[in-house]
Design a protein around this nucleic acid. Sequence first.
DNA 1: TTGAAAGCGCTAACAA
DNA 2: TTGTTAGCGCTTTCAA
Lengths: 352, 352
Amino acid sequence: MTSKKKPAISPRKRRTRTDSRPPTASDVARIAGVSQSAVSRAFTAGATVAPRTRQRILEAADLLGYRPSNIGRSLTTGKTRIIGLAIGYSDNSFFPSLIRELSKAFGSLGYRLLLFYTGDDGNSDPVLAEVLNYRVDALILASAFLSSDLASECQSAGTPVVLINRKIDGHGVVSVTADNIGGGRAIAQFLLALGHKRVAFVAGIDSSSTSRDRELGFNELMRARGVVPLRAAGNYTLEGAKRAARGLLAGPDPPDAIFFANDHMAIAGIEVARYEFGLRVGDDISIVGFDDAGPARWQSYDLTTYTQPIAIMVDHVVDCVRSMINGDGPAQEDRIVPGELVIRSSTRRPGN
Amino acid sequence: MTSKKKPAISPRKRRTRTDSRPPTASDVARIAGVSQSAVSRAFTAGATVAPRTRQRILEAADLLGYRPSNIGRSLTTGKTRIIGLAIGYSDNSFFPSLIRELSKAFGSLGYRLLLFYTGDDGNSDPVLAEVLNYRVDALILASAFLSSDLASECQSAGTPVVLINRKIDGHGVVSVTADNIGGGRAIAQFLLALGHKRVAFVAGIDSSSTSRDRELGFNELMRARGVVPLRAAGNYTLEGAKRAARGLLAGPDPPDAIFFANDHMAIAGIEVARYEFGLRVGDDISIVGFDDAGPARWQSYDLTTYTQPIAIMVDHVVDCVRSMINGDGPAQEDRIVPGELVIRSSTRRPGN
DNA sequence: TTGAAAGCGCTAACAA
DNA sequence: TTGTTAGCGCTTTCAA
């Protein structure tokens, strides 16, 4: 008879060949002749280990190719040092810079970004819901939408959420945006000063607070001066912006100034005005964008635009996230980062 | 005297208020009146749970706002469903598309990307070494450099490594690249057919295999036809490319055709030729890029270029990673994805 | 300065 | 179909 109560080794002890795992702290401990917790301490900054012990441990670790597992660490500490970044598909050249700056800023603080691309509109909850499973230390929403369900779920999970380049009214979610209203206003003022009377606005996506606010500031000032801007939707795409521009310029009373909700669309507008309507941009027509992303500075466009100071915005995001992680209470709710109007040659010269 | 051997509750049981953690499977189990493993099964696709039990569990989970922790799961399964993506700082508009496509492709397979930005050159090991601590299921290197140390460390850690848009000779690391040599050759052939005799190449970064291979194919064919291209380094930056272009065009025997190692630099070249030297691009001078990234198609540039088919390259990467994760042995070592020459108006018309 | 031990949230083998 | 149990790799008391 086989003994019933003496399994020679626990079945879990056996590992299949293919499932060989990396060396653990215990492996190192065994070789170095110390306890596993000593190994842990040797890899913890500012822990109390005798120099000689640490030395032995590091040698053993090196020998084995040991690296502390963030998984194990996260399980005990409850922190992952990972930050979720939700971002929508978009051609907007603003996003690459944003990702890079966020990655740099958080990277230097020891955080990594876990990327969640969502559809550019519609419901991004399915993918976003998953982010909580990763137990990210914070969630940054760069363009995705956040249902109130998910927002409150993050809240109760204690996961800080910061919106960048987006706002959601009423949810009490912290957000960092450029001064979209002020920028729209500044652009209106500038175009009015140039003497433009027939102006148009090309919107991005209607659900985007960014586009709405830019339009708001623009319209507000225009109407105050008795000008009612034309309007078309460009959908934040090159093709959408081209269609919008064509529609406006082929209309009965075409505008002599168009403000596009971002640089990307403005560039499409320049192409249409220049190559399809034979207009001299900055002369026959003024074109303005928003962002001051890379291509705005390229000579072929030389676009007048309102800057969106990414680095500063990212600093604010970092600041918000840090204070929320440290539990210094919720950060200031809506941070609006001022930009400035950059006047280039896509608009008429003042005094023309 | 106080009893020495009866700690009322384990000290670890106490949690500070601020450290409140999300609900666990045990919490759910307690409420649903089932075992913790039942909860686990209820959240595992294709596990064996009675419908009514699952129902109860899901209700309890919902009540508590429970979400299974990927940390715990990873610890037991040894898989994180996270893929590390190392990428260098760069303005190249190729990268944003690459990140997006990778994120899409892996996302639909249930993997997320963890971002590691590295310096564009120099040693990226410090940041890359850290990637192993995260126990990523695979590592994709889009531009970063990989020391042989780290390569072998990944190897022994069993972490699949795939290079995209990069090659490293001799390490036996799987790589997916565009047909850089073939592209360079195709461009040479095309320029020769146009009758160009004074041609130049503007390189990216010397350490980049991409730039080297493009140059290789280009030079090879050029020299075979008795043409020795001029050369300048553009460093993959806008400013570098401008300097390179100025140097070439201001030289004693300026080229009438320039091949830039990527579109980004070619665009800078167009600006310089057009606005600084008053040349008609596509007429006085032919300019060619490589990538067919977004701006190449913009009318103001309308750049002749060789396509780098990102989506297909990403498919290959996914394929490599999958087969390596499944342990189907190492994937085919160097995958070269053919592109095609796209002729636009930045080069002379054939037969001019 | 070090080690023992408990526990973090989960999966998986096994028994019931 | 369900529960029991061990264990994943680590940090953190606490005691020595």
